[in-house]
Design a binder for these strands. Sequence first.
DNA 1: AATGAATGAGGATTCATTCAT
DNA 2: TATGAATGAATCCTCATTCAT
Lengths: 206, 206, 206, 206
Amino acid sequence: MSIADRKDREKKELTELILKEARALFLEEGFEKTSIRRIADRIEYSPATIYLYFKDKNDLLLALHQESFTHLFEALSSVASVPDAFERLVALGKAYIEYGLKNPEEYELMFMLSAPLEALECRHELWCDGQKAIDLVKMMVDDCKAHGYFRKDLDPDTTAIMLWAQVHGLVSLYLKQRFKMFQDQDQKKLIDKTFGLFIKTLQCFR
Amino acid sequence: MSIADRKDREKKELTELILKEARALFLEEGFEKTSIRRIADRIEYSPATIYLYFKDKNDLLLALHQESFTHLFEALSSVASVPDAFERLVALGKAYIEYGLKNPEEYELMFMLSAPLEALECRHELWCDGQKAIDLVKMMVDDCKAHGYFRKDLDPDTTAIMLWAQVHGLVSLYLKQRFKMFQDQDQKKLIDKTFGLFIKTLQCFR
Amino acid sequence: MSIADRKDREKKELTELILKEARALFLEEGFEKTSIRRIADRIEYSPATIYLYFKDKNDLLLALHQESFTHLFEALSSVASVPDAFERLVALGKAYIEYGLKNPEEYELMFMLSAPLEALECRHELWCDGQKAIDLVKMMVDDCKAHGYFRKDLDPDTTAIMLWAQVHGLVSLYLKQRFKMFQDQDQKKLIDKTFGLFIKTLQCFR
Amino acid sequence: MSIADRKDREKKELTELILKEARALFLEEGFEKTSIRRIADRIEYSPATIYLYFKDKNDLLLALHQESFTHLFEALSSVASVPDAFERLVALGKAYIEYGLKNPEEYELMFMLSAPLEALECRHELWCDGQKAIDLVKMMVDDCKAHGYFRKDLDPDTTAIMLWAQVHGLVSLYLKQRFKMFQDQDQKKLIDKTFGLFIKTLQCFR
DNA sequence: AATGAATGAGGATTCATTCAT
DNA sequence: TATGAATGAATCCTCATTCAT
């Protein structure tokens, strides 16, 4: 038993190692430079070995993709403890932004890269993750309606998309350095301020 | 003089030709497939020739970048004729979205690609274009304030960024297919509806 | 004893299984796609296991080679029941052709592939099979002579080779698609017609 | 002018060099071992250079294929000088066999390899060469009919295929070493003897 | 001004084989 | 007996770039 266990653990460990370095490469050098070869170099295994753990590059990508969503959900789950419905929605947005800024490569993979979707369009799982995320937002919008923060006739779908677009806009412009033109200001503060303003506008939904 | 003139003109023409085909390749086949070689093939010049007109691939990218901004400004300029300040702001957002959806590769280059910025961080021109764009928004926000649509104490910078983030969020999520999970709905309509809702929220700025 | 027996039987069974799937792969996907790995995948054993039963890929090839000859002989044996000596020879040719067309990969392995011979030149068995086959033809030629269909001074060796070359020529050109230039005709019919004509020419041996 | 000439010549020379080494590799190591890399190694150029002269491996193959047919036709053309129609046909067969034995790798490429046809099925040229070859045989069969060597009602198509199959059978079995089982005899003599016997059988067509 | 020729580096994969267990 | 894990070497091909001309 212990032998099988150890083998299992070792297998898992290498899988993790591959994913870790793949993620790191993504982070450090971007998607284009993330090749099987370079990952292999970094983990000091042969390229062929990676193919023992992942069918092909897309499979590796998919694994990273799913992992990233898991991380995102973990990051978002903390807001559940916020008692007030509206404050909870605000916390969700903040947590989303924070996750994006702290995990740029994962964020890119999930929401900004063409590659994974093109290659994996067929796979149903991909949409599930995104669906789950947007459903979370919708649920919170409904909560806000239930507690009188939003009008009853507000469409939760549209509202959720609006919220998502706003935070994604902020995160993605920041990650792609498009706020660098405001050189004289702290760009992260810019995001906070903007998000704060956005939250205020939401109050007209009452 | 006429000889120098002609040479000058010819030089400009070839520069234009290169840019034109580069743009076309971007549009038809995307960023990844746009290689110096392929551009050279299409203009029926040698790859080496391109290097006489552009230092390297990044330089070519920068030129396209600037050109794209010119196009964007053209697309946005039409809103000037809208008389009402608030309506003009709304029209601006709509025009921006429309431009993004209609010119996906240019939009990507301007606002979503890492490549041009990383390589050209030093160049001041890059920021100018973005600056000009955001300034345009700020101006319109000021107009809205002047005409009583927005409170006097509203910060035009933050507001402009918020507006930009919203429309960029919508456009970029759409371009990267992240609305595909709403399979049963017209995705462009989704954008319109969301933008419409966003506009309504702006009215609480009054 | 019974334990040893069982082990023996199991060993034989796995050997058979390997050969069976190797053959199937040959047939379904051709020689190039038949790799040790793919065979291993299909029998759901590890690639390393195959090396316990066959020294290397060539050894496996040799086994298939011998097996194929067994099949060929089975296919040819049916003609024994044809009473007339000349008709029997004709039937032999037809059976050979039919076997070739129906078992293209085996046929290739036996008569068209370089691989098995190069690697196994040393092995005597290889020639035995071919020898047995050509001997069969010679015997039938002798029968024809005995029954007055062929002149007594006809050299059975040369005649046998001529017969073999003719049918092999037809089969191999067909298998390698070299009759495709006769696009407007049924290629199998072409073979039948040609073989028929060839048989007629044999009558001048009388 | 002389510069362009020289460049042209150099280009041709390298093209020839590539083809020559490709052919040599075919001959020495067989089709499977003939890779772009190995060719590049032998000509001491980089693999990428080969792609400047040939679109891809198939293109290179096609060139070799056509070249080989040119050689074959040259080899066969000598028989034109044989005055007697039947002797001419015999000479054609002998020349074909001789060509095959002397140029094994070209012969394989033209008549025994799957690869070129699979990859280039679309290309019309391929069939043209084969067509031209078989037409040559048909013409000679017609000549034999015209001069009373063959019956008037003989089908030239079927006859031509029969002749082709016979010589191809002999050549291909020889090239693939399938005559090695007649160890005690000179294999080339075997071919001659067999072809001689075959020629005799043709006389019953009178 | 223009280019033909060349290449080193790198891309994703697949393979036959080995070896410790 | 069986295998999981690993790999070096190979495959075809594309790229941005340089340089002599």
